[in-house]
Simulated scan of single mutants.
Amino acid sequence: MYEFSVIGGKTAREIIGRSRPDVVDVVRDTYLAHHDGDSVNPDSYFLRFPEKPDARIIALPAHLGGSADVAGIKWISSFPANIERGIPRASAALLLNDYETGYPFACLEASQISAARTAASAVLAAEQLTGGRGAGRLTVVGAGIIARNILEFFKARDWEIGSVTVHDRSEEYAGALAAHVTGTLDYPADCESDLATALTGADVVVLATTAGVPYIVDPRAFAPGQVILNISLRDIGPELIEGAYNIVDDVDHCLKADTSPHLAEQKYGDRHFITGTLAQVIRGEVATGTDKPVIFSPFGLGVLDLAVGLYVFRRAQEAGEDVRVEDFFGETTRW
């Protein structure tokens, strides 16, 4: 009852690496539980710094019911300047709490978990919105860690992809990701320096950048029927959002913090452009067509971190890969 475990990032990545298809299923089940009201997922809390306006640390508290019945919080930082130092932009920790007693029972390095739940939700959305597991051409905009994880999840879910096009402002990063795709994931890949060319003809587009304001504003940027995974949330101008089918993870959560859908709400004064949530698509309650682009914008729900974190924790315990901290709690009786 009073045990406390620590699970490092290397262990978390190894567990995720050998169970990516299962993680997608965990994310799917969590979306449905959230849709059914079996969760508590309050607003995220942002810690910002006056002298570093692009940096932030975000707290995502949540509770997930059902067989998980776990509470917790993810504390994730985003410092874009880290990229210039050659280190990842994001770092995170996840604390899991027992729902019966409130006692924390595990702390996990969570950048791997955050990347995995983000990638799993992207691939799940692609499967639901395309109706299959194939794309003649897939374009990735932003050649960072999130993009790499998403492509690894596509591979793990046995997607048939004719070719992958990578666009990034950095030729070095684009080349590195393309080499990984070709050498490790066994998909043909190339780099394209022109954004419009990279987007044209792609069946699926993955936006995984650190953009803070929209830069995709040409009304012809996306084609009817094209599926756009708007993972970085702020790349697309409000006019393009208004002219597309829009699927989100949670409407109220997604329409805040100047995301592209939030900018569209501010511009048009309502939410008429929202088609529904991914859970509604899974349940068959809403559908998209091929007469307009289809955009999936996931704000990122804390319950997903809990679900994936709990999955990793359980697998680590089963394999004896967690580190037990003896006497973590100084007092375990009242007297």
Rank of each mutant, 00 (worst) to 15 (best):
K10I: 11
A12M: 01
R13H: 08
R13N: 12
G17M: 14
G17A: 09
R18T: 10
R18P: 02
V23R: 01
D25Y: 09
D29T: 13
D29N: 10
A33T: 07
S39Y: 09
N41R: 04
D43E: 12
P50E: 04
P50L: 03
E51D: 13
P53C: 02
A55M: 01
I57W: 00
I58T: 04
I58W: 01
A59L: 09
L64I: 14
G65I: 09
S67G: 00
I73M: 04
F79D: 01
G86V: 08
R89F: 09
S91D: 11
A93W: 02
L96T: 02
Y99A: 12
Y99G: 02
G102V: 15
Y103V: 06
I113L: 07
S114V: 15
A115K: 03
R117F: 04
A120M: 07
A122D: 07
A122P: 00
L124A: 10
A126G: 03
E127N: 01
Q128W: 11
T130V: 15
G131V: 13
A135S: 08
T139H: 09
T139K: 01
V140I: 11
A143P: 04
I145T: 14
I145K: 12
R148S: 12
N149P: 10
E152M: 10
K155P: 07
A156G: 02
A156W: 03
I161M: 05
S163E: 08
T165S: 00
V166N: 01
D168M: 05
E171M: 02
E171F: 10
E172I: 05
Y173I: 08
L177Q: 08
H180T: 13
P188G: 00
P188Q: 12
P188C: 10
P188E: 08
P188T: 13
D190C: 02
E192P: 03
L195D: 04
A196F: 11
T197W: 08
A202I: 05
V204H: 01
V206H: 03
L207H: 02
A208H: 06
V213R: 08
V213G: 12
V213T: 13
I216Y: 00
V217F: 04
P224Y: 13
I228R: 03
N230I: 09
I231E: 02
I236D: 00
L240C: 12
I241D: 09
E242M: 08
A244H: 08
N246E: 11
D250Y: 06
D252Q: 04
K256I: 14
P261L: 11
E265P: 10
K267S: 06
G269P: 01
R271M: 07
R271F: 14
L278S: 05
V281Q: 04
R283Q: 12
G284E: 09
T288L: 07
G289W: 06
T290A: 15
P293H: 15
P293Y: 01
F296E: 05
F296Y: 14
F299L: 06
G300K: 03
G302F: 00
G302Q: 05
D305H: 07
V308K: 04
G309F: 00
G309T: 10
Y311M: 15
Y311F: 15
R314I: 03
A316H: 06
Q317G: 05
A319I: 05
G320D: 15
V323Y: 15
R334N: 06
W335L: 10
